[in-house]
Design a protein around this nucleic acid. Structure first.
Lengths: 222, 222
DNA sequence: GGAATAAAAATTATCTATAATTTGAGAAGG
DNA sequence: CCTTCTCAAATTATAGATAATTTTTATTCC
């Protein structure tokens, strides 16, 4: 019954730490001390070090030999870099996924879009948004590509969360609807074009400065 | 004098193992036993395990909890996946690098192209080819993008080496020349278009079956 | 008072040891 | 002869211990 895959301790630690970094609970530049983390997870530091290697590969942490590991910092340039990578990779994935999209999948994506519009806070919105993208891209069946996109989503989400500590506001995402509409009509090129612009906007437009400007930036985070 | 950064043991092990996997010295599916590797490198298995995590993230090895790590296998579908990812990411990089390309860089790339044409074996060719691509892409200054491309190059090289165990033959790579020519004339869109096709061809065309067909496939591996 | 320096504390990287799981060889049964 | 079981050997995963390096704190000298 209750199959408990409960994989290695290292992977659990890396998941938890990745989540904290993405959510901003661990600030950029913060030191990750292996003994402290080991103590928190009630293990030795060996699995912790393995988790660090994973975070490093994901671009969420930076390790300097003998000097420890810290949370990776990121600037606007990197946010744009990630956005552009996502744009080309998601378009590639969508092109391959298109032929495998069923009405059922598109309905599920529609649900995710609705859920995003109704989200009460930025975390709920991000989860729904991620689900939307994953649903329409996963049918491409390209594991490596999907894994890369997941990592880039995490990086995007970091930026998103850092900009909206507070002040969320419901709103309809027209891009998501337009993508679905195009896909339902079999116009996959059009869907890909919208997706590309949709994603590429991240990090452009008004700087996420004071809370006042926050609302404007919303539209450009997908 | 001889500054010896000689970073952590784990990173050295991961570099060596990655090289062996790419060159095909370690066959797909082969088990990587931590104690044996530790013994070979005269260390304990702890750094070895850290190296494994790195290889896993690069897609060169696959780890199953409690069952060990094996060299990742790859099929034609994955080769194409990697080729398509490279195509879109390298084009993205080139678009950003274009404005920063100097005549000196293009000359160095020309050298690399010549070196590739004169290569006596497949390893020499691959090294020159990689150098060519890196030279024209690095000026984009996007670290994450370049790191992803490097990983994809490793995956491509694996395929290349598996196809050409022997039977190398000198030959001029016209695509490389055409890309440089376009770049020298400031036609970066044209250069990007050629690059895209150049890379995308990998894994297409005649199957790398018997040694006889090998020659044909050459033209389409870049 | 502040830079320079030396001793102490904390932290990383690695090694050795132990527990737990898997693989594989051989024996028993159909 | 092939399957299934049992037990030993090999292997993985984690813990605990040690050496080496970095960071911090305290102290001296100008």
């Amino acid at each position: 019954m209750g199959k408990e895959p409960e994989d290695t301790i290292a992977s659990r630690i890396s998941r938890v730490l990745a989540d904290r970094i993405v959510r901003g609970e661990l600030a950029p530049g913060a030191r990750l001390r292996q003994d402290h983390i080991a103590e928190e997870f009630e293990t030795s530091h060996v699995p912790v070090r393995e988790a660090f290697r994973r975070l490093e590969a994901q671009g969420l942490a930076i390790s300097e030999p003998r000097r420890g590991v810290r949370v990776a910092s990121f600037d606007l340039a990197e946010v744009r870099e990630v956005a552009e990578m996502r744009a080309v990779l998601e378009v590639l994935a969508l092109r391959h996924a298109a032929r495998h999209l069923t009405p059922a999948i598109l309905d599920a994506a529609e649900d995710a879009a609705r859920e995003g519009d109704a989200a009460a806070d930025v975390h709920a919105w991000e989860a729904a948004n991620r689900r939307f993208h994953r649903l329409i891209l996963a049918p491409c069946g390209m594991k490596r590509l999907l894994a890369s996109i997941d990592d880039l989503h995490a990086a995007s989400a970091r930026f998103l969360f850092s900009a909206w500590q507070s002040g969320w506001e419901k709103r309809t995402d027209h891009d998501h609807r337009a993508i679905l509409s195009a896909l339902r009509q079999g116009k996959s090129d059009e869907a890909a074009a919208i997706l590309q612009k949709h994603v590429q906007w991240i990090g452009r437009g008004p700087q996420p400065a004071k809370t006042g400007a926050a609302r404007e930036t919303f539209a450009i985070v997908g």
